[in-house]
Amino acid sequence: MKIEILSEKLNPYECLQVYEKTLIAQGKWGAVSTFVGTMRDYNEGDTVQSMFLEHYQGMTEKYLYTISEMAKQRWDILDTLIIHRIGEVQPGDTIVLVAAWAGHRAPAFEACRFLIEELKSRAPFWKKETLNNGVRWVENCSSKVLCN
């Protein structure tokens, strides 16, 4: 199980390969389910130039560890990996990588889906977008605040 918060550019496919080589269960998995979240150049009808990702250091890692443990208890999986970007990101950059290894596809799919859904709804990260005419925090409850 690995949790990583990264402030540099993330190549999810390279990270997957590197982490997979360290797994002790070599030869035991029949399925790897992965989710890669990427930054779009638009949101809510506006062009987005870049984005800044903030997190609550300590609590974020703790929360991601907790949901990884929950996934391990709930499904028959061998391992999980979560890597999330912080800092300045550009359109096309990877924001998050989630992966789950299992003997069969059903638990791999379900655990991967669970991890990304829990991360998106409860892990303390926040996005601030730079638009053509100012900056704004991305809001989760459909209200937007333009700061400039």
């Binding site: 998106k120 709804s121 925090w137 809001e139």
Partner: peptide, 10 residues
């Protein structure tokens, strides 16, 4: 103690 808005990661 921490206070923060709804989260928007991922």
């Amino acid at each position: 103690v921490a206070f923060f808005p709804p989260v928007t990661g991922g």
